[in-house]
Every structure is written in C-alpha cells, then in structure tokens.
C-alpha cells in the first residue's frame, strides 16, 4: 500500500523543551492509525505540526510524497488534510448551518466570493445539510453554536472536519467529554468514512482505540516508543509499563 502521510525526523522544540523528538511516522493510504501515549507525550503537538499550526524546528512532512513542511495551514486543507481539535474550536456566533456551509463553500472554491449572497449556491446548501443530517444536527442547524449543549457542539466539531472531505483526517480525542450515547454517533460517522480516507486518531479510551485502529504508534516524551499492529502493541511489556506506571502515579 502507498504511503499517504509521512514524517521524517520531525522535531519541535519550545525553548529548551523538546516536544517532538525525531518522530518518523509512516501512514498508509486508508489506514486507521492510532497515536497513543500518556498525558504530555506530545500527541497534539504532532497533529499541530502535521496541520501547519506549528512549524517544526527540524525534519520534514510529506503528503503523498510531496514536501508540505513549509506549507500554510489553509493550503494543507485544500490538499486534503483536515483535523478536529481536542478542545472544541468553533465559531460561537455562527449557526451550525453557517459553520458547515463555510467549510463546504471553501472546498468548492467559493468562500471568497463577495458579490453573491450566502445560500445562493444550492450545491453548498445541499452538501452542508447532508453533513448536518448525518450527524443528527439538522434540528439545531439554525441555533447559535454557543447555545448548543456540549455533546452537540462536539458533533459540530467533527462534522466540520468531515465537511472538508479530507483524504487524511486527524482526530484529536474526538470522543473526549462526550456522553456514552452520543459517543456512538461520532464513532459511527468516523467508521462510515470511505475506505480510502486515512484516519489518524489520538485517543485515551483504549477500548475505542483497539476496536478502531489497525495500527498503533505509542508516543512517550515526544519520542516514538513502539509501533505495530494492535495485538503486538497490547502485548508489548514496555507499553504496559508506561501505562501501568502512569496509573500507579495517578
């Protein structure tokens, strides 16, 4: 299988702290890849580097073989990388319909048009409504996002990334803080993605990770610790030690 996303010796320093230390990841097309590790291992930093929120201090990022290390964040989205955030990053004053519509019209290259009214392109509205409906958000699509209950906001968070129709989707703890009932909606939506969409998942819920991932990378202190198939990672005594050690601390 072809590699879709690859990092080569990726490094990020904040002053004297090394948040990401020579991480070389290889993610295959269509993979369901999980990135796990204890708190503070630098998982979110890796996502921020991949999406262009942060610039690495060393190493390279390749998307389908092309170097995107210095590419601006919005251009990476147009190349097919989309993400969700661990803590909701939404537009509080906009409605879910407007929010999703933004992503759709940006993808269709109409986001900068100033001479026509919002909603005058039926393709944008139809695709936005389709995404909202899929995430059970149609009944609240006209409400201000800030007034929605947390679970619904979480769904908007995920739906917004899906609306970008990514080739590579980076999910940063998508189920964090979501009640059990709604957790199912999120996972069902992720599982229903086309097979050729590559997913990189950060998650603490191990049941979820092991039911979802076909490959797991373990990050500890900014370094890639172990990588392999779920059953191998589960058996690995070093991984157990890291997690047991953490639990013993807690």
């Amino acid at each position: 299988m072809a590699l879709v996303l690859q990092t080569v010796d990726l490094q990020k320093r904040f002053g004297g702290i090394v948040a990401t230390n020579d991480v070389s990841l290889s993610i295959e097309k269509g993979a369901r890849h999980a990135l796990i590790g204890p708190n503070g291992a630098g998982k979110t930093t890796v996502i921020n580097l991949l999406t262009g929120v942060l610039r690495p201090t060393g190493g390279r990022i390749l998307l389908e073989g092309e170097d995107i290390t210095d590419l601006e964040a919005h251009k990476r989205v147009h190349l097919g990388i989309a993400r969700t955030f661990q803590i909701n990053q939404l537009f509080p004053d906009l409605t879910p319909l407007e929010t999703i519509g933004l992503a759709v019209s940006e993808r269709l290259g109409m986001g900068g048009q100033w001479w026509r009214l919002v909603g005058s392109k039926s393709a944008v509205v139809e695709q936005a409504v389709e995404v909202l409906d899929r995430f059970h958000l149609a009944d609240v699509m006209h409400e201000r996002t800030a007034t929605l209950p947390y679970g619904k906001q979480r769904l908007v968070e995920i739906a917004l990334a899906i609306a970008c129709r990514p080739n590579v989707l980076l999910l940063d703890e998508p189920a964090a803080g979501v009640p059990e009932a709604e957790r199912h909606d999120i996972l069902a939506a992720v599982a229903a993605l086309p097979k050729d969409v590559t997913v990189l998942l950060i998650e603490h819920d191990m049941d979820l990770v092991f039911s979802f991932a076909d490959r797991i990378s373990v990050l500890v202190n900014g370094e890639l610790f172990v990588e392999g198939a779920p059953e191998d990672v589960a058996r690995d005594p070093r991984v157990k030690a890291v997690y047991l050690g953490e639990e013993a601390d807690a």
Partner: peptide
C-alpha cells in the same frame, strides 16, 4: 461570513481552508 468566522476563531478558520 468567512470574516465573521475568522473574527471568532482564526485558528479554526485556517483549519477549514480559509
């Protein structure tokens, strides 16, 4: 609309391709 979005959250606006 995109202006209002980036006023509220430039980080996310960039993350959806704006």
């Amino acid at each position: 609309l995109s202006l209002r979005s980036l006023k509220g959250n430039p980080l996310r606006a960039a993350a959806i391709g704006i």
